[in-house]
Amino acid sequence: MHALADTAPAHGGRRAGVVAWLLLAPLALWLLLFVVVPMAGLVVYSFCQRDDLGRVVYDFSWENYARVFDPIYLKILGRSIGYAALTTVICIVIGYPVAWYIARQRSPLRERLLLLVMIPFWTSFLIRTYAWIAILKSEGLLNGLLQFSGVVTAPLSLLYTPTAVVIGLVYAYLPFMILPIYGSAEKLDNALVEAAHDLGAGPIRAFSHVIIPLTWPGIAAGIMLVFVPAIGMFAITDLMGGAQVPLIGNVIQNQFFRARNAPFGAALGVVFTLLFILTYALAHRRRRATTA
């Protein structure tokens, strides 16, 4: 979605006068109040302490950040990044050929196939996750089929496993990888691929040296839409992993409700935001390097 900033219109037209500013004021104030101020508040909170009742004490300290680097939380953070990275890689491997295939089709079929991606894209991830619970639960469909056909005698515990979490994440985020890659693949000029062939590049070399760099903007956008949200996604890990595989999103959520330690939760939120910015910068740098 970072492409949006690039396509922003040049701010042309007349210079804004007092009236134009007054008209824009609600929007500017809204962004200030509900985007800028909350982010500043998050940072302030992350340096605060809490008292025994869970109330926030405005007392500057680095303690919350020191706690983030506690081995327990580092492990959870590492695991969250690992799961998100695995999900992203699987989504690219599964989704890239699909996006490529759809982009190569002629017009009516292409739009229809694209529509088939749009439907899961817009269907609530919660409902799509629930669909998998119905399949994987011990009294669910898959176990029923396995027992009915005599493959197993006792139900397997398929849900509440790391595999279930990854299935849930991949299932939820796959359309978010296919669509941006499709966007890039559709714009790709076939003549460039043919030129690579004519110059003697085999299919693999053409793919790695021509196609991948040219569709990188789509891949980068896909990474932003899959990797970052997957790190913080606590709902899917809650539903598919039970309490077995806590990820960073579950810990953050806990700090604000059960553990009542908002400052520590805020510190984790800030760390997560920094990770998000880092990913964004990396995806962008590679992109600039390839388009240059």
């Binding site: 970072h2 922003a8 037209g13 962004l31």
Partner: peptide, 26 residues
């Protein structure tokens, strides 16, 4: 934003994109 030229217009444009890409939990 289309009709008038604002000071800080591009800053505002960036700020508008932030809620779209910001992680929901944050």
């Amino acid at each position: 934003l289309h009709r008038y030229r604002y000071r800080f217009g591009s800053t505002l444009q960036t700020l508008i994109a932030v809620p779209m890409i910001m992680p929901e939990i944050v």
